[in-house]
Nucleic acid binder design. Structure first.
Length: 267
DNA sequence: AGGTTGACCTGGACGC
DNA sequence: TGCGTCCAGGTCAACC
C-alpha cells in the first residue's frame, strides 16, 4: 500500500502528536509483528520521549531520548495513526501505545506484511539505496547500468533506489515516456535524465496530494490521499491515456501488475 | 551471481 | 446467499 509519498504523509501528520512527547504504556502487542521476536518492546518504550520521527525509504523511524531507534514498516495494508483512546478499535490492531496527554498510537495491519523493527543504538546498515527525491542523474545511471532486468523491476529494487513502489514506478515511467520492459542497462543518458526528473516530479506531486488512496491507505490522522485522481496509468487499464487517448495497457512484470501507454511508451 | 518465482496473510470484488 | 477464484500499494527465501 504505502510507498514514499504515503509514508511521508504519515510521518508529517504523526509528528505534531508524537514529537517530544512521552510514550506511556504499551497496551497491546501482537508478538508476531515484532522483530526481533520476543524483544521486550513494552519495557523499551515505557516513559521514553520521541525525539525524532523520520521517513527513510518506506520506513517510519522513531528515535527515542535514549538514542535508541526502531522503525515501523507498513507492508501492503499497514496503518499507523493517532486516535483518541476511546475511539472504537478496528480489527487487526497489533500495537497500541498510550501517549502523554491521553492519545493513542495505533499500528493496524490486516495482512501483517508490515512490522515493528527494533534497531537499538547501532548505526545498522539497512541495505537501502539512495532516496529518489535527492538522487542525482549520474547516481541513477550507475544504479541502472548494473542490471539487465526490466527498468520497472529495477525501480522496485529497494537496494538500488529506496522508496518507489508499484504505483510510482508505473507513473514515473509514463511521465518519462519509457516502456517498463526496457532493459535498465540499455537506457540512454537522456532517458535516465528524463526518468530521474519524472520520478521526482511524480513523487513531489503525490506528496502534495497526501499520497494515493486506492483502498486502505490513510495518513497518521486517518485522512485519505487524493493523488489516485491524478494517476495517468496505474489501475487505469483500458482507459484513455491522458496524453494521447490510447487505451492504457496492462501486463504482468516480475509478478507485479504493470500499466503503460503503448503509444507514449514505445518499446 | 543475477534474475525469477512463490510464499507470506486477509479481505474485497466478481462470476456462477 | 453462498462459494470459489482472483487480485491487492511489499519483501523475502528458495530456486533456476
Amino acid at each position: 500500500m504505502p510507498e514514499l509519498p504515503e509514508v511521508q504523509s504519515v510521518v508529517a501528520t504523526l509528528r505534531p502528536a508524537l514529537l517530544h512527547r512521552r510514550l506511556e504504556r504499551v497496551l497491546h502487542l501482537r508478538p508476531d509483528v515484532l522483530d526481533p521476536p520476543g524483544f521486550d518492546l513494552a519495557a523499551a518504550l515505557a516513559g521514553r520521549r520521541v525525539d525524532r520521527l523520520e521517513r527513510r525509504a518506506k520506513r517510519i523511524v522513531f528515535q527515542l531520548d535514549t538514542a535508541e531507534r526502531f522503525f515501523i514498516h507498513l507492508g501492503m495494508t499497514g496503518r499507523l495513526l493517532v486516535a483518541d483512546a476511546d475511539d472504537p478499535l478496528p480489527p487487526h490492531a497489533h500495537l497500541l501505545v498510550s501517549i502523554e496527554g491521553g492519545r493513542q498510537l495505533r499500528f493496524i495491519d490486516p495482512r501483517r506484511f508490515g512490522g515493528i523493527f527494533w534497531m537499538g543504538r547501532a548505526a545498522r546498515h539497512l541495505g537501502l539505496g539512495p532516496e529518489p527525491l535527492s538522487l542525482r542523474p549520474d547516481r541513477l545511471a550507475a544504479a541502472l547500468a548494473g542490471t539487465a532486468r526490466a527498468v520497472k523491476t529495477a525501480l522496485l529494487d529497494q537496494s538500488l533506489i529506496a522508496g518507489i513502489g508499484n504505483i510510482y514506478a508505473d507513473e514515473s515511467l509514463h511521465r518519462a515516456m519509457i516502456h517498463p520492459t526496457r532493459r535498465a542497462c540499455d537506457l540512454t543518458r537522456d532517458e535516465v535524465r528524463r526518468l530521474n526528473r519524472a520520478i521526482k516530479l511524480t513523487l513531489r506531486r503525490a506528496i502534495a496530494a497526501g499520497g494515493s488512496s486506492i483502498r486502505d491507505y490513510v495518513n497518521g490522522v486517518g485522512e485519505r490521499g487524493s493523488f489516485q485522481q491524478s494517476h495517468r496509468v496505474y489501475d487505469r487499464t483500458g482507459q484513455p491515456c491522458p496524453c494521447c487517448r490510447t487505451p492504457i495497457d496492462r501486463i504482468v512484470l516480475g509478478g507485479r501488475s504493470t500499466h503503460f501507454c503503448p503509444r507514449c511508451q514505445p518499446r
